[in-house]
Design a protein around this nucleic acid. Structure first.
Lengths: 340, 340
DNA sequence: GTTAGCACTCCCTTATTATGAGTGCTAAAT
DNA sequence: ATTTAGCACTCATAATAAGGGAGTGCTAAC
């Protein structure tokens, strides 16, 4: 268990390091005035904190730097929720004043705000289809042999999927097909479309459709193709202005993974409700050793819709970022609810 | 005018520098065997080439490096079209064997191929709407007060635009409106929708629509909002593996502009038919001083649809890249033509 | 329990010195 | 008139050394 004074020392070290990115010495802490003991006393406390693995030296005679465990402790126990500044509130307020007509705009604007206000990289994931059910299917012919299927969901989303129309299939066949589908598939969760199709619909189709083969193929294309969830990234260059990334090789490997969308999607998918902080090693990607990832979720009608995250150095301004994410995820949810 | 030997020397210097990124000395050129004169002779030629501004020294006693003018000369006069390797042809062939059903997939795959085969950054722009005319409008209701307009163009594209439905407007009103629009706007180029609307349609609407104000507002949202043209980037991290970007500050400023989509769009818009090479300063962006940009265009039914480009260091493998772009832009056009 | 004092460590900066690749010029050779 | 060998000179780069300074751990005194 940590003494009151040790807590104080740890807090000062981390707060200071977060802003300067420089190792902190005992003398510097003593001079800051928040702790009125001599540097020698503080040195002793620091030795203890180091034994506990909460801080580290960069070399034998250097000042101390928070360890990952230190950050973890800080996030779990020392975080003081911060009031956003006037300017920040204004920036957010202004953006959400407009009434957006489209989901995507809300998300993009949110990503922009996050990266702007923090100078970290913001990543937003969504919407996930877990909770949406199909309301309606429409098919629009584009050319002789291609068409697009528009899937409208209960929560007012729209997806479109292109497909080839078999030669022998007429528009009237298509229409009949759409009617069958609308009849049978309305209300079905999008992720269950596949099994539903394999199940009951198949039989039905065999009865009604003259050319089962090609109809089936068509449906495969139009309904079953996995629609990858979208990823919005903003301020990706911000992170390389951080002093921990003055070494180009780190930037290289970081950017190389960030280019792999599926990796990023996996990363963000792990987040559960509420705010979650992953520090350094806790992120499973080697290239993000020196990073922390903070995720929050946003909702539509109280059900999980997507994830909003910030990626920065482990030396992140946790208090501020968490407050900001809290505010923003709520704003997003509110704005989205208002949309439909 | 350059002598034969000077041309040779210049060619060797540039070819060599493109692959090593190191200044080339007279001795190295002599040893390469392509020119059977002594290093002293070559030294004299090099001095001349430098006087003409085609090559430069990095310091008083260094070897030579191509200047921007040198690259320009090289591109204009010394380029030898290169046969793509078996592996490259295969990579491309395989990708275009599949019959895509959607424009976007073709573009994304092309961008991927380009950055993979060159290790530069590929940027693709498009499709532009210049040449497409409206074929059909459909409106799909999403929720009580939102709907989406689907615009289908003559060349089989689809755009969708969300909009708010005024409270007092019923579905039947909407349907009537759509009919009017389809009647009057079919065949109109997308970029002229605006003026058409201001012109003849307005009168018509005033007659038929009970609530002109809100109808007009609706149309504004649904039809007139500028739809930004899409930008696909692939292999953005490739460029920072180039030795000219070992300095992080260059990477920072480069990535900072590349994040500004409109800047990039402007850049690519400048390209005209055929292949165009912009070297260093010729690109108007400061952050791209050390870069070259090579653009080509792709078409649909022989009319300009979009731009495909590669961004790399000025020390780019021009011959290879140009051959590759040639092949790929044709393949894209072909694949797109087959699509509709 | 706290603090002053001190020896010690190691990073960082600056200065110094090779080393070597490459040049320009001159004079000799072809 | 070209071409080439020879040589002095330049300058980046790497390696080495030296000094300064921030910071530590430990001991002994307060």
């Amino acid at each position: 268990m940590l003494t009151q004074r040790q807590l104080q020392v740890l807090q000062v070290i981390i707060d200071e390091f977060i802003h300067t990115a420089q190792p902190i010495g005992s003398r510097a802490i003593a001079k800051k005035g928040e702790i009125s003991f001599s540097s020698a006393t503080i040195r002793n406390e620091m030795a203890d904190l180091e034994d506990m693995g909460l801080i580290e030296k960069t070399h034998t005679s250097s000042g101390r730097v928070p360890s990952e465990r230190g950050y973890r402790f800080y996030v779990d126990h020392l975080l003081s929720p911060i009031r956003l500044s006037q300017a920040e509130m204004q920036r957010i307020g202004l953006a959400f004043e407009k009434d957006y007509i489209h989901f995507e705009k809300v998300v993009q604007e949110s990503a922009r705000i996050l990266s702007e206000l923090t100078n970290y990289t913001s990543i937003i994931l969504g919407p996930e289809v877990f909770n949406s059910t199909l309301r309606q299917i429409q098919i629009i012919s584009l050319s002789e042999n291609t068409a697009v299927a528009i899937l409208v969901t209960n929560n007012g989303h729209m997806e479109h999927r292109y497909f080839n129309v078999p030669k022998m299939m007429k528009m009237s066949d298509l229409e009949r097909l759409v009617n069958i589908l609308n009849d049978r598939l309305a209300g079905v969760p999008l992720i269950q479309l596949k099994e539903k199709l394999y199940g009951e619909i198949t039989e039905l189709l065999m009865k009604y459709s003259e050319d089962f083969e090609s109809t089936y193929y068509l449906l495969q294309q139009a309904l079953l193709e996995e629609q990858p969830v979208k990823l919005y990234v903003d301020g990706i260059s911000n992170i390389m202005y951080q002093p921990e990334f003055k070494d180009i090789e780190k930037v290289q490997s970081l950017f190389t993974v960030m280019e792999q969308e599926d990796e990023m999607v996996n990363l963000l998918r792990k987040s559960d409700e509420g705010i979650r902080v992953s520090i350094g090693q806790e992120i499973e990607l080697d290239a993000m050793q020196d990073c922390s990832l903070i995720t929050a979720t946003y909702t539509l009608d109280n059900s999980h819709l997507g994830t909003i995250a910030l990626l920065g150095p482990t030396r992140m301004d946790y208090s501020r970022v968490i407050s900001l994410l809290n505010v923003l995820s709520k704003q997003m949810s509110k704005s989205l609810d208002g949309l439909y």
